[in-house]
Protein backbone atom coordinates (compact mmCIF):
# COMPACT_ATOMS: atom_id res chain seq x y z
CA UNK A 1 0.00 0.00 0.00
CA UNK A 2 3.01 2.31 -0.32
CA UNK A 3 1.49 4.01 -3.38
CA UNK A 4 -1.34 5.54 -1.40
CA UNK A 5 -1.00 9.20 -0.45
CA UNK A 6 -1.08 10.44 3.12
CA UNK A 7 -4.61 11.25 4.19
CA UNK A 8 -4.64 13.86 6.92
CA UNK A 9 -4.15 17.36 5.61
CA UNK A 10 -6.76 20.07 5.26
CA UNK A 11 -6.32 20.20 1.47
CA UNK A 12 -8.31 18.30 -1.12
CA UNK A 13 -7.07 14.73 -1.56
CA UNK A 14 -5.44 14.09 -4.93
CA UNK A 15 -4.90 10.38 -5.45
CA UNK A 16 -3.15 10.98 -8.75
CA UNK A 17 -3.71 12.46 -12.19
CA UNK A 18 -7.30 12.59 -13.49
CA UNK A 19 -8.18 8.94 -13.86
CA UNK A 20 -10.12 9.05 -17.10
CA UNK A 21 -7.46 7.04 -18.90
CA UNK A 22 -8.18 4.46 -16.26
CA UNK A 23 -11.94 4.67 -15.99
CA UNK A 24 -12.89 5.09 -19.65
CA UNK A 25 -12.24 2.82 -22.63
CA UNK A 26 -10.68 4.21 -25.82
CA UNK A 27 -14.25 4.61 -27.11
CA UNK A 28 -15.15 6.72 -24.07
CA UNK A 29 -17.28 4.07 -22.39
CA UNK A 30 -17.23 3.66 -18.64
CA UNK A 31 -14.99 0.75 -17.61
CA UNK A 32 -14.43 1.58 -13.93
CA UNK A 33 -16.31 4.04 -11.74
CA UNK A 34 -13.64 5.64 -9.58
CA UNK A 35 -14.55 9.30 -9.40
CA UNK A 36 -17.03 11.76 -10.92
CA UNK A 37 -14.22 14.25 -11.56
CA UNK A 38 -13.42 14.57 -15.25
CA UNK A 39 -16.48 12.74 -16.58
CA UNK A 40 -18.59 14.67 -19.04
CA UNK A 41 -22.21 15.71 -18.99
CA UNK A 42 -23.21 13.27 -21.73
CA UNK A 43 -21.89 10.30 -19.80
CA UNK A 44 -23.49 11.39 -16.50
CA UNK A 45 -26.79 11.89 -18.30
CA UNK A 46 -26.47 8.46 -19.89
CA UNK A 47 -25.98 6.90 -16.45
CA UNK A 48 -29.02 8.73 -15.08
CA UNK A 49 -31.13 7.71 -18.11
CA UNK A 50 -30.12 4.07 -17.71
CA UNK A 51 -30.95 4.25 -14.00
CA UNK A 52 -34.37 5.61 -14.96
CA UNK A 53 -35.10 2.40 -16.90
CA UNK A 54 -34.10 0.31 -13.89
CA UNK A 55 -36.19 2.45 -11.54
CA UNK A 56 -39.30 1.29 -13.39
CA UNK A 57 -38.49 -2.33 -12.65
CA UNK A 58 -40.10 -2.09 -9.24
CA UNK A 59 -43.49 -2.46 -10.95
CA UNK A 60 -42.62 -5.96 -12.06
CA UNK A 61 -43.66 -9.06 -10.19
CA UNK A 62 -40.09 -10.35 -10.63
CA UNK A 63 -37.75 -7.49 -9.72
CA UNK A 64 -34.83 -8.93 -11.60
CA UNK A 65 -33.33 -8.88 -15.09
CA UNK A 66 -30.90 -11.43 -16.54
CA UNK A 67 -28.32 -8.86 -17.71
CA UNK A 68 -25.35 -9.96 -15.58
CA UNK A 69 -26.24 -13.62 -15.23
CA UNK A 70 -23.08 -15.65 -14.67
CA UNK A 71 -21.02 -12.64 -13.52
CA UNK A 72 -19.47 -12.58 -10.07
CA UNK A 73 -19.30 -9.31 -8.17
CA UNK A 74 -17.16 -8.94 -5.06
CA UNK A 75 -18.07 -6.38 -2.41
CA UNK A 76 -14.66 -5.63 -0.95
CA UNK A 77 -15.32 -3.52 2.14
CA UNK A 78 -12.39 -2.45 4.28
CA UNK A 79 -14.63 -0.05 6.18
CA UNK A 80 -18.00 -0.66 7.80
CA UNK A 81 -21.09 0.15 5.78
CA UNK A 82 -24.68 -1.02 5.84
CA UNK A 83 -26.63 1.06 3.37
CA UNK A 84 -24.01 1.28 0.63
CA UNK A 85 -23.04 -2.37 0.81
CA UNK A 86 -26.60 -3.67 0.88
CA UNK A 87 -27.74 -1.49 -2.00
CA UNK A 88 -24.71 -2.58 -4.06
CA UNK A 89 -25.56 -6.16 -3.18
CA UNK A 90 -29.22 -5.77 -4.10
CA UNK A 91 -28.30 -3.99 -7.34
CA UNK A 92 -26.03 -6.89 -8.30
CA UNK A 93 -28.66 -9.45 -7.40
CA UNK A 94 -31.37 -7.66 -9.38
CA UNK A 95 -29.04 -7.88 -12.37
CA UNK A 96 -28.79 -11.65 -11.69
CA UNK A 97 -25.09 -11.53 -10.79
CA UNK A 98 -23.61 -13.64 -8.00
CA UNK A 99 -22.34 -11.61 -5.07
CA UNK A 100 -19.52 -12.25 -2.68
CA UNK A 101 -19.32 -10.01 0.42
CA UNK A 102 -15.88 -9.72 1.92
CA UNK A 103 -15.34 -7.73 5.06
CA UNK A 104 -11.58 -7.31 5.10
CA UNK A 105 -11.14 -5.77 8.51
CA UNK A 106 -12.18 -9.10 9.97
CA UNK A 107 -10.30 -11.40 7.57
CA UNK A 108 -6.91 -11.48 5.86
CA UNK A 109 -5.80 -7.93 6.63
CA UNK A 110 -5.65 -9.07 10.22
CA UNK A 111 -3.44 -11.96 9.16
CA UNK A 112 -1.11 -9.56 7.37
CA UNK A 113 -2.04 -10.37 3.77
CA UNK A 114 -1.37 -7.40 1.48
CA UNK A 115 -4.03 -5.80 -0.66
CA UNK A 116 -2.36 -7.12 -3.82
CA UNK A 117 -2.33 -10.66 -2.44
CA UNK A 118 -6.03 -10.40 -1.65
CA UNK A 119 -6.66 -9.08 -5.14
CA UNK A 120 -4.70 -11.82 -6.89
CA UNK A 121 -6.48 -14.50 -4.88
CA UNK A 122 -9.90 -13.15 -5.77
CA UNK A 123 -8.89 -12.81 -9.43
CA UNK A 124 -7.86 -16.45 -9.37
CA UNK A 125 -11.49 -17.21 -8.53
CA UNK A 126 -12.50 -15.63 -11.86
CA UNK A 127 -14.52 -12.75 -10.52
CA UNK A 128 -15.71 -9.91 -12.79
CA UNK A 129 -16.10 -6.83 -10.62
CA UNK A 130 -14.82 -5.33 -7.39
CA UNK A 131 -16.89 -2.88 -5.39
CA UNK A 132 -14.36 -1.29 -3.06
CA UNK A 133 -14.65 0.79 0.09
CA UNK A 134 -11.52 1.79 1.98
CA UNK A 135 -10.53 4.41 4.53
CA UNK A 136 -7.54 5.48 2.41
CA UNK A 137 -8.05 7.87 -0.50
CA UNK A 138 -7.02 6.28 -3.79
CA UNK A 139 -7.58 2.62 -2.95
CA UNK A 140 -10.11 2.05 -5.75
CA UNK A 141 -7.68 3.64 -8.23
CA UNK A 142 -4.91 1.41 -6.94
CA UNK A 143 -7.03 -1.71 -7.43
CA UNK A 144 -8.17 -0.57 -10.89
CA UNK A 145 -4.54 -0.09 -11.93
CA UNK A 146 -3.57 -3.55 -10.76
CA UNK A 147 -6.66 -5.58 -11.60
CA UNK A 148 -6.56 -8.00 -14.53
CA UNK A 149 -8.04 -6.74 -17.83
CA UNK A 150 -11.75 -7.46 -17.99
CA UNK A 151 -12.30 -6.73 -14.31
CA UNK A 152 -14.21 -3.56 -13.40
CA UNK A 153 -13.73 -1.61 -10.20
CA UNK A 154 -16.40 0.54 -8.59
CA UNK A 155 -15.42 2.99 -5.87
CA UNK A 156 -17.87 2.72 -2.97
CA UNK A 157 -16.00 5.37 -1.00
CA UNK A 158 -12.27 5.97 -0.56
CA UNK A 159 -11.08 8.02 2.41
CA UNK A 160 -11.99 11.66 2.02
CA UNK A 161 -11.68 11.49 -1.75
CA UNK A 162 -14.76 10.26 -3.60
CA UNK A 163 -18.04 8.37 -3.39
CA UNK A 164 -19.24 8.57 -6.98
CA UNK A 165 -22.31 6.33 -6.87
CA UNK A 166 -23.67 8.25 -3.87
CA UNK A 167 -23.32 11.48 -5.84
CA UNK A 168 -25.02 9.88 -8.84
CA UNK A 169 -27.99 8.70 -6.81
CA UNK A 170 -28.29 12.20 -5.36
CA UNK A 171 -28.28 13.65 -8.88
CA UNK A 172 -30.89 11.09 -9.88
CA UNK A 173 -33.10 12.08 -6.94
CA UNK A 174 -32.75 15.79 -7.75
CA UNK A 175 -33.45 15.23 -11.45
CA UNK A 176 -36.59 13.21 -10.73
CA UNK A 177 -38.01 16.08 -8.68
CA UNK A 178 -36.58 19.15 -10.34
CA UNK A 179 -35.67 18.22 -13.93
CA UNK A 180 -33.28 20.85 -15.25
CA UNK A 181 -30.16 21.53 -13.14
CA UNK A 182 -29.26 24.86 -14.74
CA UNK A 183 -31.90 26.80 -12.80
CA UNK A 184 -31.21 25.20 -9.41
CA UNK A 185 -29.54 26.52 -6.27
CA UNK A 186 -28.11 23.66 -4.24
CA UNK A 187 -26.58 23.97 -0.75
CA UNK A 188 -24.37 21.30 0.81
CA UNK A 189 -24.20 21.78 4.56
CA UNK A 190 -21.82 20.33 7.11
CA UNK A 191 -18.46 18.64 7.31
CA UNK A 192 -17.17 19.29 3.79
CA UNK A 193 -13.56 18.76 4.87
CA UNK A 194 -13.91 15.07 5.68
CA UNK A 195 -16.70 14.28 3.22
CA UNK A 196 -16.03 12.22 0.11
CA UNK A 197 -19.75 12.46 -0.56
CA UNK A 198 -19.65 16.27 -0.71
CA UNK A 199 -16.70 16.26 -3.07
CA UNK A 200 -18.34 13.87 -5.52
CA UNK A 201 -21.60 15.80 -5.31
CA UNK A 202 -19.88 19.09 -6.08
CA UNK A 203 -18.19 17.62 -9.17
CA UNK A 204 -21.45 16.06 -10.38
CA UNK A 205 -23.49 19.24 -9.80
CA UNK A 206 -20.93 21.31 -11.70
CA UNK A 207 -20.69 18.86 -14.60
CA UNK A 208 -24.50 18.92 -14.87
CA UNK A 209 -24.24 22.74 -14.98
CA UNK A 210 -26.16 23.47 -11.80
CA UNK A 211 -27.09 27.15 -11.50
CA UNK A 212 -25.43 27.70 -8.11
CA UNK A 213 -23.62 25.31 -5.79
CA UNK A 214 -23.09 26.47 -2.20
CA UNK A 215 -21.17 24.92 0.64
CA UNK A 216 -22.16 25.90 4.16
CA UNK A 217 -19.81 25.03 7.02
CA UNK A 218 -17.65 26.46 9.77
CA UNK A 219 -14.11 27.29 8.60
CA UNK A 220 -12.69 24.35 10.53
CA UNK A 221 -14.77 21.92 8.42
CA UNK A 222 -13.84 23.31 4.99
CA UNK A 223 -10.75 22.42 2.93
CA UNK A 224 -8.41 25.41 2.67
CA UNK A 225 -8.69 25.34 -1.12
CA UNK A 226 -12.45 24.66 -1.33
CA UNK A 227 -13.08 27.48 -3.83
CA UNK A 228 -11.10 25.51 -6.43
CA UNK A 229 -14.10 23.23 -6.65
CA UNK A 230 -16.28 25.99 -8.07
CA UNK A 231 -18.59 26.66 -5.14
CA UNK A 232 -19.93 29.63 -3.20
CA UNK A 233 -18.82 29.45 0.43
CA UNK A 234 -21.13 30.41 3.31
CA UNK A 235 -20.18 30.27 6.98
CA UNK A 236 -23.71 31.11 8.08
CA UNK A 237 -26.57 28.65 7.59
CA UNK A 238 -29.30 31.28 7.25
CA UNK A 239 -27.57 33.01 4.34
CA UNK A 240 -26.63 29.64 2.82
CA UNK A 241 -30.24 28.44 2.82
CA UNK A 242 -31.68 31.58 1.26
CA UNK A 243 -33.90 30.52 -1.70
CA UNK A 244 -32.20 27.16 -2.27
CA UNK A 245 -34.05 24.44 -4.22
CA UNK A 246 -32.11 21.58 -2.68
CA UNK A 247 -30.34 21.29 0.65
CA UNK A 248 -28.01 18.36 1.23
CA UNK A 249 -27.11 17.77 4.88
CA UNK A 250 -23.91 15.86 5.63
CA UNK A 251 -23.39 13.55 8.55
CA UNK A 252 -21.34 15.08 11.32
CA UNK A 253 -18.86 12.43 12.33
CA UNK A 254 -18.81 12.55 16.10
CA UNK A 255 -15.16 11.53 16.28
CA UNK A 256 -14.34 14.93 14.75
CA UNK A 257 -15.27 16.56 18.03
CA UNK A 258 -12.31 14.91 19.66
CA UNK A 259 -9.94 16.35 17.06
CA UNK A 260 -10.91 19.88 18.10
CA UNK A 261 -12.56 20.70 14.81
CA UNK A 262 -15.71 21.64 16.66
CA UNK A 263 -16.91 22.92 20.01
CA UNK A 264 -19.84 20.66 20.93
CA UNK A 265 -22.75 18.87 19.30
CA UNK A 266 -25.15 21.26 20.96
CA UNK A 267 -23.37 24.32 19.68
CA UNK A 268 -23.05 22.79 16.20
CA UNK A 269 -26.81 22.17 16.10
CA UNK A 270 -27.42 25.77 17.19
CA UNK A 271 -25.37 27.11 14.28
CA UNK A 272 -25.61 24.50 11.52
CA UNK A 273 -28.51 22.18 12.40
CA UNK A 274 -31.37 22.15 9.90
CA UNK A 275 -34.66 22.95 11.64
CA UNK A 276 -38.15 23.43 10.25
CA UNK A 277 -37.93 27.11 11.11
CA UNK A 278 -34.68 27.60 9.20
CA UNK A 279 -35.96 25.60 6.24
CA UNK A 280 -38.51 28.37 5.66
CA UNK A 281 -35.66 30.47 4.27
CA UNK A 282 -35.32 28.03 1.38
CA UNK A 283 -37.63 27.73 -1.63
CA UNK A 284 -41.13 26.45 -0.63
CA UNK A 285 -40.51 23.34 -2.78
CA UNK A 286 -37.03 22.73 -1.41
CA UNK A 287 -35.83 19.12 -1.23
CA UNK A 288 -34.05 17.98 1.91
CA UNK A 289 -31.45 15.27 1.32
CA UNK A 290 -29.02 13.35 3.50
CA UNK A 291 -26.68 10.51 2.47
CA UNK A 292 -27.35 8.80 5.81
CA UNK A 293 -27.01 7.80 8.50
CA UNK A 294 -28.40 11.04 9.95
CA UNK A 295 -27.54 12.22 13.46
CA UNK A 296 -30.93 13.50 14.54
CA UNK A 297 -30.59 16.56 16.69
CA UNK A 298 -27.00 17.17 15.58
CA UNK A 299 -27.11 18.18 11.91
CA UNK A 300 -30.84 17.72 11.31
CA UNK A 301 -34.01 17.97 13.36
CA UNK A 302 -36.24 14.87 13.31
CA UNK A 303 -39.22 16.97 12.17
CA UNK A 304 -37.22 17.88 9.03
CA UNK A 305 -35.71 14.43 8.40
CA UNK A 306 -39.22 12.93 8.47
CA UNK A 307 -41.00 16.01 7.10
CA UNK A 308 -42.70 16.73 3.78
CA UNK A 309 -39.54 18.15 2.14
CA UNK A 310 -37.44 15.11 2.96
CA UNK A 311 -36.49 12.68 0.15
CA UNK A 312 -33.99 10.80 2.32
CA UNK A 313 -35.65 7.40 1.87
CA UNK A 314 -36.13 7.94 -1.87
CA UNK A 315 -32.36 8.37 -2.06
CA UNK A 316 -31.97 4.86 -0.66
CA UNK A 317 -34.44 3.39 -3.18
CA UNK A 318 -32.81 5.17 -6.12
CA UNK A 319 -29.39 4.03 -4.94
CA UNK A 320 -30.27 0.56 -6.19
CA UNK A 321 -31.30 1.74 -9.69
CA UNK A 322 -28.24 3.95 -10.06
CA UNK A 323 -25.88 1.17 -8.97
CA UNK A 324 -27.59 -1.22 -11.39
CA UNK A 325 -27.00 1.30 -14.18
CA UNK A 326 -23.30 1.71 -13.36
CA UNK A 327 -22.76 -2.03 -12.98
CA UNK A 328 -24.39 -2.90 -16.28
CA UNK A 329 -22.58 -0.10 -18.11
CA UNK A 330 -19.11 -1.07 -16.91
CA UNK A 331 -19.74 -4.75 -17.65
CA UNK A 332 -21.01 -3.80 -21.12
CA UNK A 333 -17.92 -1.68 -21.83
CA UNK A 334 -15.58 -4.67 -21.55
CA UNK A 335 -17.42 -6.51 -24.27
CA UNK A 336 -17.39 -4.07 -27.16
Amino acid sequence: MTELPAAHTSRLPQPGPLPNRLQLTDEGQLRHMLTIEGLNRTLLTEILDTAESFANMNEKAVKKVPLLRGKTIVNLFFEASTRTRTTFELAAKRLSADVLNINISTSSAVKGESLLDTLRNLEAMNVDMFVVRHEESGTAHFIARHAAPGISVLNAGDGRHAHPTQALLDMFTIRRHKGDFTKLKVAIVGDILHSRVARSQIHALNILQTGEVRVVAPRSLLPADVEQLGVHVHHDLDSGLQDVDVVIMLRLQRERMEHAHLPSEHEYFQRFGLTARRLQLASPTCLVMHPGPANRGVEIESAVADGPHSVILEQVTYGISVRMAVMSMVMGAHQS
Binding site: Q29, E46, D49, T50, E52, S53, A55, N56, V65, P66, L67, S328, M329, M331, G332, A333, H334, Q335, S336
Partner: peptide, 17 residues
Amino acid sequence: FYRDDFSRIGMHPQVRP
Protein backbone atom coordinates in the same frame (compact mmCIF):
# COMPACT_ATOMS: atom_id res chain seq x y z
CA PHE B 1 -32.20 -5.92 -20.37
CA TYR B 2 -33.17 -9.35 -21.68
CA ARG B 3 -31.07 -9.55 -24.84
CA ASP B 4 -28.87 -12.58 -25.32
CA ASP B 5 -26.12 -10.54 -26.98
CA PHE B 6 -25.39 -8.20 -24.03
CA SER B 7 -22.23 -10.15 -23.27
CA ARG B 8 -21.03 -9.42 -26.81
CA ILE B 9 -22.25 -5.92 -27.62
CA GLY B 10 -22.84 -4.35 -24.20
CA MET B 11 -25.50 -1.97 -23.05
CA HIS B 12 -27.84 -0.26 -25.48
CA PRO B 13 -27.38 3.43 -24.78
CA GLN B 14 -31.04 4.39 -24.86
CA VAL B 15 -33.23 1.99 -22.98
CA ARG B 16 -36.85 3.10 -22.74
CA PRO B 17 -38.78 1.93 -19.75
